[in-house]
Design a protein around this nucleic acid. Sequence first.
DNA 1: AAATCGGCCAACCGCCGTATA
DNA 2: TTATACGGCGGTTGGCCGATT
Length: 324
Amino acid sequence: MGRAPCCDKANVKKGPWSPEEDAKLKDYIEQHGTGGNWIALPQKVGLKRCGKSCRLRWLNYLRPNIKHGQFSDAEDTIICSLFASIGSRWSIIASQLPGRTDNDIKNYWNTKLKKKMMAMNPSPQRKPHQSTLLPILQSSPLSFRDDSNKSYCHPHRSFTGSGSLSYSSSLLSGNNSSASADSFFQAQESFMDPTQKCQFRDSSSNNMFVFGGEAAATSCSSSDASCNNQISQVMEAEFGDASFVEQIGVADNHLYTGVEDTIHKLMMFSSAGVSGWSDKQNGLWEQNPLDYGLEEIKELISTNNSFNNFLFDEKKTEERVKYY
DNA sequence: AAATCGGCCAACCGCCGTATA
DNA sequence: TTATACGGCGGTTGGCCGATT
């Protein structure tokens, strides 16, 4: 036999929470905690609510340090890069944005950010060097730095090269955004040594991103330096340029290893396609993975159990978002 | 001033994996 | 071992509110 029924569905209140209900729930949890049992909680608190409803209210609204309101450009960037990598795994994405809830991010994506992206890319037939992410990156207070203090920037581009190299804001802030976009990515592609690592730091959040070179290559278990080029090809197919940024770590250690692992596997996945590997026995690939656009990749992620397992099972518990 | 529209967001719904009796 | 509740998640809905006509 199973457990007793959780609550009398006919006698639970639905709809918006009153300030009195909020206060009751908040006071109780602050004094006694949840007790690890949400279903029993409403009765203890004296609320005619379903336990699930209490849980949601607490997690999305009442718990401490919840951030409401405007998302920063840095947050936009993180959301976009993670969405591109792992799709609509809102809880994982939320784990990278302290104070934000999965519900918040989901709403923000569905109502604003997605439209922002669509507006930037009205046609699915994107031109080369037309980046979905660029305008968001453009609006971020970015600076680039050379990880090894060695200058590898293009000599004719306006970077400065000693230690902390600052990216010229003039490239990003031009009136003609598409022109500056092209300039930006052409510049990046031309100066980047594929064996080197290029990082940029979002100064507002102190998040560190890495694209290109060794960082990506060493994330690839095959130690194949071409891995990085291959992930670039995948990203190029989707974004129209090879400059899509892989977030492989953040300075404040908020990034879960599970996410890193997912991105790592995404790289392996792209690498596998190039090397001719396929998993048709499992029905995983019907075509060379490099022939998939990112939307198709995300579709695969969301619908194909094999791929889902491939991406997530190993570190499932690590990926679970900790709300407390 | 009233009606309509559209954006925003809190909350609900339903599914899935896990825990438990 | 099995049936069922629980916890968690993503998708969707519906009401509120400000902007526009």
